[in-house]
């Protein structure tokens, strides 16, 4: 889950990249569009996700 930086809406990352295939900037912008307000949110880098995942596992 991620939270939109504009409207505060919580949504799944995959919900925010559904329209990317048709976009001329596809593959370049790394932004995730809020399904509610359309604000472009930066995606979490791969390595940050990995580090967070590691700590989550360790805390279990």
């Amino acid at each position: 889950m991620m939270r939109c930086g504009f409207c505060g809406y919580d949504f799944e990352e995959k919900e925010g990249i559904q329209g990317c295939k048709n976009c001329p900037m596809s593959g370049g912008c790394k932004m995730i569009k809020c399904p509610k307000c359309n604000y472009e949110n930066p995606s979490e880098p791969f390595w940050v996700k990995k580090v967070k995942g590691f700590f989550k596992e360790a805390n279990k």
Binding site: C29, S43, P45
Partner: peptide, 10 residues
Amino acid sequence: LTKTYTRMQW
């Protein structure tokens, strides 16, 4: 920091 890093990198 995460958002700044991602935007800067892009």
